[in-house]
Simulated scan of single mutants.
Amino acid sequence: MADSAVDARMRMVAGAADMIGRRGVNATSVRELAKHTGAPLGSTYHYFPGGKGQLAAEAVRWADDLTARMLAPAMAAGPTEGLDVFLGMWRKKLVDSDFQAGCVVLGVAVEATADGESVARDAAVFAFGNWTSILAGALRERDVEPTQALGTATLIVASVEGAVAMCRAERTTQPLDTVGQELHRVVRSVLVEAAG
């Protein structure tokens, strides 16, 4: 595939992630995506013959990759540093979008119900698991017992996802800030317990 074709395809995937994060899967059409990204409608069907389900799955994979690339190096520095990056990433996205943009992964996870969208739902399950695994790995590196590391990482992902939804509804970062403070307290406690 030529570079311009790759660029056009990636613009559509990124555009789909943006639209689904803002509107959800059901309110995002392939026709609107073409208009949103300035792509000819025919090219959308050419690049995504699996339709909206394929497009949603690729948007989730794109968001997962972007998040993992930000999260993994920060987690290598330590769990609290990684948590700060995760919280900061969502804070920036919320503020920059005037609280309109949410998580494409969550949007797909809660809305992808049609048979053709099962691949998108599977991508969402993988993305949440990937983020949880990165977080849990950083905790295990600090001698946190594997079950507790996984539980703490799951708490982080679930709490941040819920806080993002609350921030969008309330149009303020206060829920995310509050959740962040509490998650820092949990992580510090887990690390102290592991060190003792």
Rank of each mutant, 00 (worst) to 15 (best):
R91E: 11
S97Y: 02
Q148W: 02
M166S: 15
A56C: 13
D96F: 01
L87T: 11
V144K: 04
L87W: 09
A56K: 11
G78H: 10
G82K: 02
D143G: 05
S43T: 14
R23P: 05
A114E: 14
M70V: 01
S97D: 05
Y45V: 03
H184W: 03
L87R: 11
P146S: 08
L71K: 08
V30T: 14
E111F: 13
S159G: 09
A76V: 01
A16Y: 02
S43Y: 15
V160W: 05
D122F: 13
A194S: 12
L71C: 08
T154N: 06
Q181C: 04
L94W: 02
P79E: 07
H46I: 10
L139P: 01
R91H: 09
L183Y: 10
L139H: 04
R91G: 06
A127I: 04
A169L: 15
T173W: 05
V85M: 10
S4P: 00
W131L: 11
E170I: 04
W90C: 02
P79H: 07
V30C: 15
M75W: 04
S4M: 03
T172V: 09
D7S: 00
V157P: 02
V187I: 13
L135P: 00
G107M: 01
P79D: 06
A59H: 09
R9K: 11
V144S: 03
A57E: 05
E170T: 08
M12D: 00
M89W: 08
T37G: 15
F128C: 09
G21V: 10
V30W: 07
V6H: 00
L41Y: 13
L139S: 06
V164C: 01
A77D: 13
R140L: 00
C167D: 01
E117G: 14
D122T: 15
P146R: 04
V186M: 13
D7V: 06
A8N: 06
E32D: 15
T172G: 04
L55D: 09
V119L: 11
R142T: 02
A8H: 02
G129D: 10
A16Q: 02
E182G: 13
E161G: 08
G151T: 09
R171C: 06
F128G: 05
A138V: 00
A109Y: 10
K35Q: 14
G53L: 07
R91C: 04
A101R: 13
S159W: 07
V104E: 00
A2S: 05
A109V: 04
V85C: 08
M75H: 08
E111R: 12
G196Y: 13
E170G: 00
L191E: 14
G151Q: 10
E193G: 07
G180I: 11
L66C: 03
E145M: 05
F128V: 13
G53K: 06
D65M: 09
C103V: 01
A112C: 12
F86K: 14
R121F: 13
E141Q: 13
A138K: 00
D64N: 12
S29F: 13
E32K: 14
A17Y: 05
V25R: 06
P175L: 08
A123R: 14
S189A: 14
G116E: 14
L66K: 01
L33I: 05
M12C: 05
A77K: 11
A2F: 02
G42V: 10
M89V: 07
L94Y: 04
H46C: 04
D64R: 13
R11F: 00
V110A: 06
F86C: 11
A56W: 11
